[in-house]
């Protein structure tokens, strides 16, 4: 029940069309560094998961990356994140990764 409430809280996010608030961007920035970072490294230079620096991602489109974030990669430890973040969130993360996170 608590888990449902938590999931509901996380899923109740701005709809895809709206731009993300600065607060949400800061949350996602922290999510990427800290939680994606638990496999990909806090500086995203790779760990058990592959490196996610702009040079590593150049051959993927934002759309590809958004799909990978939302759906995961079956057969690998990359999980689907769609239960926790919206498509707009994932697109923002994909764009930010391709550009490189701000220091």
């Amino acid at each position: 029940m608590r888990k449902l409430a938590l999931l509901a809280a996380i899923v109740a996010l701005p709809a895809a069309a709206q731009p993300l608030s600065d607060g949400r961007k800061a949350e996602l920035d922290s999510l990427v560094r800290q939680d994606c970072g638990s496999c990909h490294g806090m500086t995203l230079k790779g760990g058990l998961g592959r490196p996610l620096l702009p040079g590593d991602l150049a051959r993927y489109s934002t759309r590809d990356l958004t799909g990978i974030i939302l759906d995961g990669i079956p057969g690998t430890p990359m999980p689907p994140w769609k239960a926790l973040i919206s498509r707009a969130d994932a697109e923002w993360i994909a764009r930010s990764l391709k550009k490189g996170l701000e220091k």
Binding site: D35, S38, C39, P77, P79, P80, W81, A83
Partner: peptide, 11 residues
Amino acid sequence: RGEKPLPVYKM
């Protein structure tokens, strides 16, 4: 993991 594993967000 069983038949329907939940996503693992951290190893």
